[in-house]
Structures are given as C-alpha cells and as structure tokens.
Design a protein around this nucleic acid. Structure first.
Lengths: 256, 256
DNA sequence: AGGCGCTTGTGAAGACGTGCACAAATCGCG
DNA sequence: CGCGATTTGTGCACGTCTTCACAAGCGCCT
C-alpha cells in the first residue's frame, strides 16, 4: 500500500524522477529481453524491430513495445531499437551497472550447484560468499571460494557489501537464515527453501520452488489426460471431487 | 506420509473426474497450500480455517477461499477445512495421485543437484532417468541412477512412461533436447536453460531461470536505493536514462 | 430449541495485465 | 522534395486477478 505518487514530476522532458515505477510484469520480462538482446548483439545485429526482439524473447510484440515504452525507451520508428543502447537502458534500470555481491547460504546439493552456476557471473552478479551452518562443510572450497560458517555473516556482509542473499538450506533452517540476513542489512532474498519466509517490510523475497513447478506441470498433464479421456459427456458440471479417492490410483490413464 | 481415509465422507464416489478448469493463478498457488497443509497435518491439526491456512501459505485469506471454492472444496462454515480431505482434493486436482516419472536431461552442475534433490520424491515425482549428451558422463551413477545417453530417450520413454521432461542443459542444447522430448511424446517440460523453447501446441513448457530471479531482485534493490538517495530535491541532475551511461559504474550509490 | 459467534463462499468493484489496431514518426528512394 | 514502406508508441477494449464486504450456514452453549 505504499504507492507514493510524485506530484509535480513532469516526467517527459528533461529530468526524470529516480526510476520509473514499472509494472511488476514488465520488470519480470526485462531480463528476458536483455538476454535476447545480448544474443542479438553477439550475432552482430545493431538494431532490432519489436517484432524480431519479441520473437527472440518469446512474447507478443505489442507487449514488448509497451514494456519498453514504460522505461521511456527510444526506438526509432521505421527502424527499430538500437541493440546496444537498449541493453544499456535495461541494464541500468535493472541496476546491473554495478556488479552485486551475493551471499549463498546453504551449500548442500542445490547450493553446490548454484555456487558453480556460471549464469550468475555472466549476468552481473558475483557470488561473494558461501556459508553453511554445518561445521563439517565449513572450510570446503568450491569454485575458488571457501565455505565459511553462517555465524560469520555479519563480518562477511561488511567485507563484501552483500546486496542479495540466497537461501539454499533445508526448510527448517530457512527462517533463521533469513532473520540473520535481514539483521545484517540484506534487503533482497532469493529463497529456494520450500517454506514461507516472514520478513519485515521493505525486504523483498522471491521464492523458487522446483517441486512447485513440477506440480503445476502435473496439473496440466492431468487435465490434458482427462480431456482426451472424456469425449463430450457434457452432463455433470462442477463435479464433487469425491471424498474417498485415495485408493483410485492412475485414474486418468484408464481410457476404457 | 500416511494417507488416511476420511471418515464421514459420503461414499458417493464414482462421479466422473471432469476437472474444473481452474484459473492459472489458482493452480500456481495450490502446491503452496498443499505444502502448508502437509505441515499442518504433521503438526496434528485436523482442521484449519482459511485464515490459518492462508497465513501458513503466505497469501490473503479471501484469495485462498476463492481458490478453494474453484475446485468445489467443501469447508464447513464456522469450523474450517478438514486438513486430510483438503490434501486429498488438492493432490487429486494436481494429478499427484499417481507418481509421475520425470526424465532429467543434462547432468551438469545443476542437473546433479536436481538429481539429488529429494523434494521431488517427497512430493509425488520420481526421477526415472538421467540423460546426457556427453559420452564421458554416460555411465556415471548418481543417487542410484545410471546416466544414459540422450539418444536412448525413445527407449527410456517407453520403459519408464516418462510424463515430464526436465532440461538442465546449456542453452545451446536445450532446443534440440526439447525436440527430442516432444518427439517421444512428452508434453510437459520444465526448462532450466536460459533460452526460449519453441514447441508444438499442446506441449506445456515452464521455465525457471535463476539469473532472472536475481535480476528482478536487483531491480528492486536499485529502486530502493534510488528512493532513499533522493529525498526531495526535485532537481536531481542524474537519471533521465541518458544514452551514454556505460562508463558510469555504481551509479545509484551517489547520495550527495 | 433457539440464539450467538465463527467461518465459509461469493457478488461486486476495482486494479492489473494483455492484445488489437491505428495514428504518428522516420527512413530510403526515385 | 515528396511519397510509400516500415515500425514505434499508445488509446481502448477485454479478460484475468485481487480484495472487500457480507449473507448464508454451521456448531456450540444455554
């Protein structure tokens, strides 16, 4: 509920307020555009039309134009967008002009993979610290970084100016880690643990839950199967999702 | 992990499980509810109010009630929802009553982690096959599964009745893998490669891009910083998203 | 039995996101 | 220099999602 409108900000010509407050949906797509633009730049393109870029990013072209218009981007009509310029603009808006330091907490299975994932480094982030609560993991070296104990977080945070914390611990430990991160001033958290984190206002949490993605796919799979299995018995509408269905396994597969 | 039958549920089963077509937003939240419900069940709760469940799942209670109403769920007014029954219903709708077989393609850094991630198994999925194109990786055993060559996909698909394919390859290889998955009949794909996949209609693709999440956080971080940096002085020289800002590093830090 | 407090389910309104379709702007060319 | 081809930026309409607010239903207590 903190929608502060800036009255008197003329907006168009000349000085613009700090950052245009973009729609969340737009923000979520900008990284995708950025990736597509980098590909285009590597391929030698100097300009690109909204049609071309939207295809490369997998979205509707009108949506792309509207997104870009939100950040006041200058394309040239009849020509398209300047690839290099657009990259700069998006990187600026996303705050990627500085390389942000990331602290990764939890060096288990997933943490290991994240520590070794080079997609972070190549896209403006620097994994600056690896932390774990398990003493037997402390001291291990991964990708040139030594795992330190999570209690050293305060020291690490000031040493490295940590901007973003990544939680890759088991769910049981996640809230405590989040609290620790918040207490050392981290205001952006990426949470891989399957649990809800409660954080004070002003702290952003994004969650990635691998199993949830599979479950969503499972739903669609289930629906597809039930549709092809049932021709057109338009009778029972909402159905009652019967109570005792635990026993009925592999229900959808049976065509009969 | 016990699924008890629900006493009191009328034996009025047998109704055709025509799935109500839920709003996408609802589908995306159901797994979250499910996780919260499992936690509640483990903690011994037999019923839960929409208020309690929504808090555990981190959403608005009205939204939760509407979501549940979409799948025709029966709560009891004045009491709440039966935890066990609701778990059954959601698992049924999500198609989790059968354990779906997942093929994981790409056993690099991330693939290794995914192969070892036990969150899949514990939530209704079975990693049935590991595949990779790199011959030096074929034969490796991970978590009790032997890595096979990706060209064996047709055989694997029929052997294991693969329902979902997970792509954890480099971006350059992802499209080819997707094509292969589609050609063996897989219609649900979870893509971790940072690229857009083109697939025929009827195939569902969900994408998880770890770097994108960080970039979104970076945007908010940037915005927070720029807000606190500019209290009131409307003049403010910078910003305006100038054309040549490539050189200006760490732009937002300037308070002055 | 009846009333009371609690909780669900939902109508309605508003916020948000999407996509079409077209005017405005720009370039290249004759 | 003007015209046509091209492409952006956006007004508008539509659909989806969210949130509020409240009537209807349920159990419990007296």
């Amino acid at each position: 509920m903190s929608q502060h409108r800036q009255p008197g900000a003329p907006g168009r010509a000349g000085a613009v307020p700090a950052l245009p407050d973009l729609p969340e949906a737009t923000v979520a797509r900008l990284p995708e555009y950025l990736r597509a633009l980098h590909n285009l730049a590597d391929a030698g393109h100097e300009t690109v039309s909204s049609e071309g870029l939207s295809a490369a990013a997998g979205v509707n072209s009108a949506k792309l134009r509207k997104d870009l218009s939100h950040l006041g981007s200058y394309g040239t009509r009849g020509v398209g967008y300047d690839v290099a310029l657009l990259i700069e603009q998006i990187e600026y808006v996303l705050g990627l002009t500085q390389r942000r330091a990331v602290a990764l907490v939890g060096v288990g299975n997933l943490g290991h993979a994240l520590a070794g994932y080079d997609g972070f480094a190549s896209r403006g982030f620097r994994i600056a610290a690896l932390l774990d609560a398990d003493p037997s993991r402390v001291g291990e070296e991964i990708n040139g970084l030594v795992v330190r104990h999570v209690d050293e977080l305060p020291a690490v945070a000031t040493e490295e100016s940590i901007a973003i914390g990544v939680i890759a611990t088991p769910a049981a430990a996640a809230q405590r880690v989040a609290d620790q991160l918040v207490s050392v001033g981290v205001t952006s958290i990426l949470n891989f643990a399957p649990c809800v984190l409660s954080v004070p206002e002003g702290v952003d949490v994004r969650k990635v839950d691998l199993a949830i993605e599979l479950q969503i796919l499972s739903f669609h799979e289930h629906r597809k199967a039930s549709l092809t299995a049932l021709p057109a018995t338009g009778g029972s509408a909402l159905t009652a999702l019967p109570g005792g269905l635990a026993a009925t396994d592999t229900q959808e597969a049976i065509g009969t």
